[in-house]
């Protein structure tokens, strides 16, 4: 009874700089597992964002580029257009993708660029120390919303999967979570499916992952999972929002 478990080859053996309990590490592993299982490491190019995951390239063993804040989808477009044979993924946080990079992600999705985006939604700016993000919840405290997000002043949190599904161009748009083993296993399948769509050259694929930020939420890692479950999931409903025929 039982099964084995080992570190995917596409993950380097460097220790990560992420805070204890931060689910970035889980997301990295799931991406690396997808790359290993599809045997595409030799032709994969990852693109790191600006944010906590800016150092993602230290944790993967495939070719990597480092984008300017929010511009990873444009860089991925550049690669896919000149080298359609390469497998390209962007790994971005909510400040990178939903704030400064909103234009890039919407137009890449709308053009149906055949790369894969892994979108880490933890409702806060991590690297810069806890500022409000477009995904920060109403009333949720952040260093730039000390009394909690005032939606009269800053609008409502942006639901990227819901937004992108409205584009008519076909694509795979899904929202998953990393808050418990069942969700993580489902997220793993979704990420692999996203990469499979790319390998088949079928469509743009986008996997939003509800994640935690214990440090900037001011919670223990376990309490952060609970808070995300209670506060984020009701608003950011999980599931496949668009699947190509």
């Amino acid at each position: 009874m039982g099964k084995s478990f080992s570190t995917p080859k596409s993950l380097s053996d460097n220790y990560t700089h992420y805070c204890p309990g931060c689910t970035h590490g889980i997301a990295h592993r799931l991406v690396a597992q997808a790359i290993d299982e599809l045997g595409i490491a030799g032709r994969t190019v990852g693109i790191a964002p600006v944010g906590c995951a800016v150092l993602a390239y230290n944790y993967f063993t495939c070719d990597f580029q480092e984008a300017a804040h929010g511009r990873a989808p444009a860089m991925a477009t550049g690669i896919k257009r000149v080298r359609p044979d390469l497998i390209v993924f962007t790994y971005q946080g909510d400040g990178d993708l939903a704030s400064i990079g909103m234009g890039e992600i919407i137009h890449a999705a709308n053009r149906g660029e055949k790369f894969t985006t892994i979108f880490i939604n933890n409702a806060i700016y991590g690297m810069t120390g806890g500022q409000m993000a477009p995904t920060t919840m109403p009333g949720q405290r952040a260093t730039t919303a000390p009394a909690g997000r005032d939606t009269d002043q800053t609008g409502m949190p942006i639901r990227m999967a819901n937004l992108l599904k409205e584009l008519v161009t076909p694509g795979y748009i899904t929202r998953q979570a990393l808050l418990n083993p069942k969700q993580i296993n489902k997220a793993k399948k979704a990420i692999k499916k996203a990469f499979e769509y790319q390998v088949e050259g079928k469509c743009f694929s986008f996997v939003e992952l509800i994640s935690t930020c214990p440090t900037n939420w001011g919670l223990t890692p376990v309490d952060a999972l609970k808070w995300a479950e209670d506060t984020l999931l009701p608003y950011y409903e999980l599931g496949d929002y668009k699947v190509p025929e």
Binding site: A67, R71, T77, V82, E104
Partner: peptide, 18 residues
Amino acid sequence: GESEVAVGYMIFGASACG
């Protein structure tokens, strides 16, 4: 591209992959 900003980075991505 959708803007000169995006185009600048399409150029960067394409160039960086050789």
